[in-house]
C-alpha cells in the first residue's frame, strides 16, 4: 500500500518535506477517487448488462447514505430522506440504460437524479424542464458530437478544481449544491448582499470552467 509510506516517517523528517507530503496526500486522495469512479462505472455496466443485483447493492451502499444526507440537509426528516434515497436509487436501476459515460461521471448522473427528486418532492416544484432537456439529449445518437463529450479526464479533476477555489467562493458552491440553499438564503446566512453572492458564484464557476476545459 502506498499510504504506508505516509505513516512511517523517516527519522530525518524535516519541515521542507511538508509540502511534498501534502502533495502526496492529495495525489493519494485523487488516486482513490479515480479508483472509485472506475469502480462505479463498472458497477453501472454490470447492472446495465445483466441486471446484476449485487452490483446494484454495492452502488446503493455507496450512494444511498450520501443521498440521504443530502435530503436531510434539504429539509427532509429521516423517514422521508430514507424514502427519497430509495426512490433515487430505484430510478438509477430503471434508467440505467440511459447512462452514457461520455456525458459525465456516474456520481454526476446520480446527483442529477437526486436533484430532480428533491425539486419534485421537497420543493413541490417541477423537474420536467430538466427531463425534457435530458430526453432531447437522448434523442440524438451521439452526446452532442464532440461538443457534448465530458472526458473522464475532466470529470476526474472536478474535486481538485473545487479544492483550489478561494474559501469564500468554495463555501458558496458547497451551500448551493450540498446544502440546497437558494441564492437568497446563502446571502442571508453569510450576511452578504445578494449581488455579492451572485458575483462570487459567477467567479467561482467561471474559474472552474476555465480550469477544467483546459483538460478538454
Amino acid at each position: 500500500m502506498q499510504s504506508a509510506r505516509l505513516i512511517e516517517q523517516p527519522p530525518g523528517y524535516a519541515v521542507s518535506d511538508l509540502r511534498s507530503e501534502q502533495e502526496q496526500a492529495r495525489a493519494l486522495r485523487e488516486a482513490e477517487a479515480a479508483r472509485l469512479r472506475a469502480e462505479h462505472r463498472a458497477l453501472v455496466a454490470r447492472i446495465a448488462g445483466a441486471r446484476d443485483r449485487a452490483a446494484f447493492a454495492a452502488l446503493f451502499a455507496h450512494f444511498g447514505p450520501r443521498i440521504k444526507a443530502l435530503m436531510i440537509r434539504a429539509g427532509a426528516d429521516h423517514a422521508q430522506a430514507d424514502d427519497l434515497a430509495q426512490d433515487v436509487m430505484l430510478t438509477v436501476w430503471r434508467k440505467i440504460d440511459l447512462y452514457h459515460p461520455a456525458r459525465g461521471s456516474v456520481q454526476g448522473w446520480i446527483f442529477t437524479i437526486a436533484r430532480n427528486a428533491r425539486i419534485d418532492r421537497l420543493r413541490r416544484g417541477s423537474a420536467r424542464p430538466y427531463e425534457d432537456v435530458e430526453a432531447l439529449e437522448l434523442a440524438s445518437d451521439t452526446p452532442d458530437g464532440e461538443e457534448g463529450v465530458l472526458s473522464s479526464e475532466i470529470c476526474e479533476h472536478v474535486g481538485a478544481a473545487i479544492a483550489t477555489l478561494p474559501d469564500d467562493q468554495r463555501t458558496i458552491i458547497e451551500y448551493a449544491y450540498a446544502h440546497d440553499l437558494s441564492q437568497t438564503q446563502i446571502a442571508r446566512r453569510l450576511e452578504l448582499p445578494l449581488g455579492t453572492v451572485k458575483s462570487r458564484m459567477r467567479l467561482a464557476y467561471g474559474r472552474l470552467k476555465d480550469r477544467l476545459e483546459e483538460l478538454r
Partner: peptide
C-alpha cells in the same frame, strides 16, 4: 450551454461524493 450545465452538474456529483454519510434505515 448544455455542456456548461453538465460540467456544473459534475460539481454536484463531486460534492455528493464528498458529503458525509447518514446511515440508512
Amino acid at each position: 450551454c448544455r455542456r456548461a450545465v453538465r460540467l456544473a452538474e459534475e460539481l454536484g456529483g463531486s460534492l455528493l461524493e464528498d458529503t458525509e454519510e447518514t446511515a440508512l434505515a
